[in-house]
Design a binder for these strands. Structure first.
Lengths: 235, 235
DNA sequence: GCAGTTTTATGACATTTATCACTTTTTATA
DNA sequence: TATAAAAAGTGATAAATGTCATAAAACTGC
């Protein structure tokens, strides 16, 4: 089975429903939908590799991707996850550098490709669009610096609690208080920045302490205030 | 002695010599120099605190500042240094958030303040300026993610070697191969993300191994290729 | 449904790194 | 320049975390 499948641009995709495109006028939106090409991507599919040249960005319509860097010994460090409404790969377009991360599909995704020139052109002609893109980047930078500090200063235990809460914020809990994303222990370790074994041990510790409940890859958060306390997370 | 001293805008400050202002036209440059107010800042002076609201940005004309975050236990994590030509504090202006870092003068500095509205206005009217600011931010984001991965995956020894090389790139060496910036061991530790004692021990180890020479806070790099190897630094 | 692969789990152990206590040296300041 | 304060340096020790080996469990593809 092909891991990528092109789909005709679907009129059901309402570009205006994505914050990032709010500032665009009719004409620009029309141009956008003309040049966008959308496709389904299966789990495991890689959109771009760290170090490769990217010629455009993707907007995520459906599904989840993980954005990660590979350390010199081959270990992944997950930088963030992208989901519905997120733009990926535009950093390299704008900075005019090679991709500094790899983007891999985690949950089957529908993505729309947007040529780089279109993006840079929109930035030039529409200052409101430029501003929202810039705002997006600046916020991401703030988060990156925050996480950098956490990794440098917090213990693995604190970081794991924090990551669970981060996943809650990003993907929500279902009615059952279970995280709406399922990751392998290794992926969790690659977010936290630790060894897989450490995550496994700490998760069962959290379970023993009745903070979470484990069911395979499903994690149910039982005591969020306590997790906040353990993770030293302030909002 | 006052730690801040206003200076009349100096015609000698050639705005065009700063990359970031390259795209501005005569009129915009004139407007800029009209609304800019410049001042000397002594070592130790804090421009803004993490968590405070910032109303403008500063462009560094002379001197060095350290930009850092404070962890929940009060430990500093140095995010970067700002020097001649660098813009500081604009992230918060654009993201419309409170300052996520503190900016402190390390080497006596001359800074020019630029009201936030002016900055956002320039972004609106001059797309070339918007683009360079965006490029700047995207590159910074790339670096932040890279360092995040390093802190998560490299040992303290590797990171210290890397930080020495980073300082070399940022501040150059003098004729004597000595780093042109002098930091306390604690500040080095706050860059590397480790304890001060660890930095002290590793520095003397590097010294024993003839990689560096120490003279108070002056660090002379004797064997750069070896430092690159130890730090697993690839360009 | 089975064989092979991947993931999870656990124990033992090694290594790295932090912490504490203290001395010496350097730097800043009255 | 005297004196206080800060920084650098060192050793002993504890704590956190990584690594390795191995087994059990859970998936996956035919």
């Amino acid at each position: 089975m092909k891991s990528i499948q092109n789909v005709p641009f679907n009129e059901d995709i309402d570009l205006l429903s994505y914050d990032i495109f709010h500032g665009l006028n009719e004409e620009e939106l029309e141009m956008l939908s003309q040049s966008m090409s959308c496709s389904h991507h299966k789990r495991g599919n890689i959109l771009y590799h760290e170090g490769s040249r990217i010629n455009g960005t993707y907007i995520v319509i459906k599904g989840i991707l993980k954005i990660y860097k590979t350390g010199f010994d081959g270990k992944e460090q997950i930088i963030r996850f992208a989901k519905n409404g997120d733009l990926i790969g535009f950093r390299s377009i704008i900075s005019d550098e090679l991709a500094c991360t790899t983007a891999k599909v985690v949950n089957e995704a529908l993505l729309c490709y947007l040529p780089g020139e279109l993006l840079t052109n929109l930035i030039k002609v529409n200052s409101e669009f430029a501003m929202s893109l810039m705002k997006l980047t600046c916020r991401e930078l703030g988060e990156s610096n925050k996480f950098l500090t956490d990794i440098a200063q917090k213990t693995v235990r604190e970081r794991l609690a924090e990551v669970l809460l981060l996943l809650m914020d990003t993907f929500d809990l279902d009615e059952d208080h279970t995280l709406q994303i399922s990751l392998t222990r290794e992926e969790l370790a690659n977010m936290v920045g630790t060894a897989t074994e450490s995550v496994i041990r700490l998760l069962s510790e959290f379970k023993t302490d009745k903070l979470i409940e484990l069911n395979g890859r499903k994690i149910k958060l039982l005591n969020i205030p306590k997790l906040i306390k353990i993770g030293n997370v302030y909002i």
